[in-house]
Structures are given as C-alpha cells and as structure tokens.
Design a protein around this nucleic acid. Structure first.
Lengths: 221, 221
DNA sequence: AGATTTTTTTGACCTAGGTCAATGGCAACT
DNA sequence: AGTTGCCATTGACCTAGGTCAAAAAAATCT
C-alpha cells in the first residue's frame, strides 16, 4: 500500500471507511512539505480545506497582541487539523505551524463535506475525535486557571509518562520554549521551575530526558 | 404541543429529527426539578444519561484542591450537557450545578446511543454543537492565557452586547461572584476592575446593568 | 573543527492579582 | 421594621511569575 494511503486508512478519523472511499480520499489528497518552523496557515485565513499530518509535528496556536504564544494543540502523524473550520465554512480560528519538518496531506473542502453526509461511520469517528479534544481543552482550562505552573508541568509530565509507557523517566517531545508556550508560561519561568524541582529531588534533568525521581510528590502538584 | 416536546423539538441538538423520534424522546425523557444552587452531578460520577435544560440555568465547573471554582460552560434552555461523557461511557469530567432554580430533562444513555447510530442528521447536529463548543473553549484558553483580567471582562461584555443585541448597555446574567469564576479570577479582583473601568469612564455600573460608555476603548483591552 | 544562530539558564527587578479581614448593601423572611 | 444571611466592595499585604538583560550552552551550518 502506498504511504499516504496507509496514513489515511490507519488514522483515527478515517478508520473503518470502505476501501473505495479510502482510495478516493488518497486520490484527492494533496501532499505538502514544510520545513521546521514554517507557518501552514494564519488565524483568519479562509478554510478551503483541512490537513492531516503524515509525518512530523504541527502546533495550533494563538498569539496575543504583545506577541506571546499559547499553544492549543500539538498534532502528530495520523491526526487531522483544521477540520472544524472547514465544517462550518468559517475562517481558521488559530494559527498552524510546523514544530519539525513535516509532510502533510491536504483535503479540499468539497470532497470532505460530501463524504461526511454520505457516511454515518465517518460522522461517528468525527464525534469521537471532537469529544476527545473537548476533554483535553477542559483539562487545559482547568490547568491554566486552577493550577500554578509547577502543577501544570507535573500534569504534562504525567501525560508524557502515560504516553511513553514508563514511570521512571520521560523524553520531552518538544523544545522547552515551546513547552512553556503550551503550559501558558514563559521560558524563563519554566527553566526556574525545572531547577527548583531538581533541587527538591523530584526530578533530574538530562537534556531532553527527565528522570522522575518521586512520582508521588510530582502527583501532589 | 406539550411543553417538554417543544423544548426538545426546538433544540439545536434534536432539530430536524422525524416526528416519531421526537415523540419517542419526549416519552423517555424524565423531568427533574432543582432549586437554585443545587448540584446535579459531581466530577467522576458515572454518566448513565445526559441532560437538557428546559428552564433555568446550569453551570459546568471544575474545582481546585483549594476550593477555587472555574466555570467551563453556562447552559440555558434548550442546551444539552453531559452528552460527551455519555457518548464515551466515561464518568463526568466536571461538576454541574444550577445557577437558578431549573427544570431539566434527563435522557438515559441507552436510548440516546441507539438514536445517534440510527440517525445521520442527529450525528451532524452533534458535530455542529461540539464544534461550537470547541471554538468557545479555544477562546476561553486564549483569554485565560493571553489576556489579563480587564481584557477577559471586556471580552465577556462584548459577548453579552452581541447576545443582547445592543451596544449601549448590557445586563449581567449572573452574580458577579460567578462571573469572576467564569473569567478565572476572584470576586475581589473583579470588583476592583469594575471600579477602575468606571473611574476611567469606560463603563457605568448600575447593579446588574452595565452601561458601555466607550466600546472602542473596551475593545482595545 | 570553527563559526553562527538558536535555545536555555541565571540574575535583578517589578507588577498583576491573589488572600485575608473588615465593612457595607441588599434581599428574603418573620 | 427588624433580623438573618448573602453578596459586593474596600483596604492592606504578599507572592507567583512576568520582563529585560546578559551569560552559558546547544544545535546548526560551512
């Protein structure tokens, strides 16, 4: 099977669709390559189609008047983005840029809308995906509003530990500056908190590897 | 048409369903009454069904270890809540309580899941609803992270102005303490900010009525 | 390897806004 | 009208974390 076909067929979004439609999707998808740090679209751009990450990593983010960034999502291979805007025919509500050099599949609006109406199981997949995102957003709001920065970092470390299936150490999947933007803080503050948690013996930082020395304590945050 | 039937038929969620199914829904819905300030469910409760507001107002909120509240949503007549959890068979991810004495319709899980699978147009309604919520959440994250409290208040005043269809004054639809919790701040801080914006001549506060004296300036925030 | 750019860390300083406590207003109830 | 209870306001104080600037460390390029 061709690479792009496999990405489509294995994706959470299109899983379970009939062969014919998967092939159709693969046919209409346009492949786009982006170097690291390139912008894919800006907030307010008309949404004439949506994307799926084939390879690499993409961030969706808002920017304040003062230029501060807040990352809303980070998407990896198999994950679609920009579909919500496409669905409503509204402009994109946030910016998208690559965090690593990436290969993306672009799906034009028309085809997608047609497919969803015709395909109940696709609609159910979309509902599942949106529900999951809603849950993540709710957690992010909770973290931003009810936890201080150390607590948010702890929350992210727990998430990574779960995702990487280990509880002794995790490997950061993004630069610390970007992590700061995801956690809603500044690189300086994040750096200080890493330092403090190290002094307290909760973690040990070795470049991108964070050793979790006392998960119990970390959980408390 | 009976009252509950009208609520169901007019709702964003069930709009467009065939008569027979609307009637079926009205039949299986259980009506529940709650006085002001009562809890409907707690975070972590098993989600055996979901609700729709028939009358009154409901808040969905998280609580920090220290007891601080963050409101995620406020729902009024015709709006469903708790459906996402029901869909996944997961426990409720947040608490729900009434902001005013309310009448709710409760729909048991089984019926709903069956109905969605059988009914493509219902699935599309759900997608539209989830998309809208996702957008609102994104705005809330942006506000919490990238704006200071005056900016968040300005954002809410704009929202109210739009909703109430006027640009000279708006009427607060919730107590100021609850508004503080929605904006992710404390009642004290919110009170001070109302005072400051009044001194600056941006607004004039008369109980629950806020006169918008300089919408241009307010927009800047 | 050396040079250049980007990222991270550290230090010094400052402020938005949180907390605690007291007071004032207002509404509901008797 | 008086009492009770809740909500909003104000004052005093404090701290988490933001900002600016500089140094150090990594990553990237030739």
């Amino acid at each position: 099977m061709e690479n792009r076909t496999r990405i489509i067929a294995d994706s959470f979004l299109f899983r379970g669709l009939p062969e014919a439609q998967l092939a159709e999707l693969a046919r209409i998808a346009v492949e786009k390559r982006h170097g690291r740090g390139e912008t894919i679209f800006f907030e307010g751009d008309p949404a004439s189609g949506f994307y799926m990450v084939a390879e690499g990593k993409v961030k969706i983010f808002k920017v304040s008047m003062g230029g501060k960034e807040q990352i809303l999502h980070i998407f990896g291979p198999g994950e679609p983005f920009g579909e919500v805007a496409v669905f409503h025919g509204q402009p994109f509500p946030a910016n998208a840029a690559t965090l690593a050099s990436s290969s993306l599949l672009y799906f034009p609006r028309r085809e997608f809308v047609r497919l969803v109406s015709a395909n109940p199981s696709l609609a159910l997949n979309i509902i599942a995906m949106l529900s999951l995102r809603l849950r993540r957003f709710a957690t992010q709001i909770e973290n931003l509003s009810l936890k201080e920065v150390p607590g948010r970092l702890a929350s992210y470390l727990r998430y990574l530990a779960e995702e990487q299936g280990r509880d002794d150490r995790v490997v950061l999947d993004l630069p610390k500056g970007q992590l700061a933007s995801l956690l809603g803080t500044s690189p300086e503050t994040l750096s200080r908190i890493f330092a403090r948690m190290s002094e307290e013996g909760l973690i040990r930082v070795e470049g991108k590897t964070i050793h979790l020395l006392d998960m119990e304590q970390i959980r408390q945050r």
